[in-house]
Design a protein around this nucleic acid. Structure first.
Lengths: 208, 208
DNA sequence: TAGATTGTTAATCGATTAACAATC
DNA sequence: TAGATTGTTAATCGATTAACAATC
């Protein structure tokens, strides 16, 4: 049954990129077919969960055979709207912002950083990787002209909310926030968080 | 009731660092008291969830008054074993590894990077921030001597598993993996993942 | 005191899993 | 065909929430 019209749980959507990543690795290994069992073992989850997750979007496998690695990979790319290249801006040209702007892992996976911004006059104009750092004051016009919908925030925590407000005003629809603070944005804007310390702190709970 | 002896769900443990981070911000703002309602609004979750989560570990609030910001902050620090400084090594001195090694956000939150490793002879010996890059061959002796229990992997995906194997052999108990690949480790070792592309790919599902 | 908020219980909600008919 | 694996259903499991007595 094709459930494309139904509401897909957010937690399911969040697992699709993980499946995609595993399929990509399998493809690189020259694997042609896989099964929910193999994927499940690879990822440390249950095969039933994988089949259930995929069933929200259609029928991609064959009984007895499993899934074509390339085929399922392509289906998931379509479902996640990764059949194009999404431009991306980075705000903040410190350690994190610079590293992220130069990260080579975006290209093969649907994204491309197109500009790097900072509000520090001492940094504006400097070269960072392949970018010349632009002034935050240019964000609005840049976003309007280039139709960018995604931004990464890599500024100090105390400035993150005002940067987020600015980005929302510019029409940015998805924010990946590296600043260790919760952001307040309208429900039309999607925010995701990366804070390595949260992961480390969770791990230390289990130690000692 | 003090439930310290019971098994606490992993998902609850994962939220404690988020509470801690919010309390830290509140403390910086000079706030003395807070409530489950205020924290909940701040974080976009329910107040009942916060009270339930905390109830796994003890009773930290007062009816009518709520929680002392400093008091709850300190309790959570103890629960998460953050009442000390955990040393940390970084393997991989590329963009990500270098940025992470120099990240100033660890110090105030319980962690300190003590060494940076790479297997590329061209990088070994180079200065990166405050570190001289060491050879991967030194990981084993370094970990043994310095009693490090945590490592961050920031090497290319195709080398991540072998680095993880090495770290596990050295006695590392917690791994934060920046390489976009799932790692296979014994169940005694805790692995967490950071892959910005997974977050971006999740967001694009909701766009267009 | 009156108002506010806790910690806890029980109900609800939603996610995961087991099982299996269908079928490649 | 025989074996394997899908997609789906129903059961189970676990997490979240609503409600409230207790009490500061």
């Amino acid at each position: 049954m094709d459930n494309t019209e139904n509401e897909v749980p957010d937690i399911v959507v969040g697992r699709l990129p993980i499946y995609l990543r595993a399929l990509s690795t399998m493809q690189a290994d020259g694997k042609l077919y896989t099964s929910s069992h193999e994927l499940a073992e690879w990822l440390g989850i249950s095969s039933a969960q994988i089949r259930k997750d995929l069933s929200h979007f259609g029928e991609f496998g064959k009984q007895g055979t499993g899934y074509s690695v390339a085929g399922l990979y392509e289906e998931l790319r379509q479902i996640l709207h990764l059949d194009r290249e999404w431009p991306l801006i980075v705000v903040g040209s410190g350690n994190i912002g610079s590293a992220v702007a130069s990260y080579s892992g975006f290209a093969q996976r649907g994204f491309r950083v197109v500009a790097l911004f900072d509000n520090d006059p001492a940094k504006v104009g400097a070269r960072v990787g392949n970018f010349i750092v632009r002034d935050n004051a240019e964000i609005e016009s840049f976003v309007a002209e280039s139709h960018v919908l995604h931004a990464m925030i890599a500024v100090p925590a105390q400035h993150a909310q005002q940067v987020a407000d600015l980005l929302v005003d510019c029409g940015i629809r998805g924010i990946l926030n590296y600043a260790p603070i919760n952001l307040n944005v309208p429900s039309t804007v999607h925010v995701e968080y990366i804070d390595p310390v949260l992961h480390l702190q969770k791990m230390t709970y289990y130690l000692e």
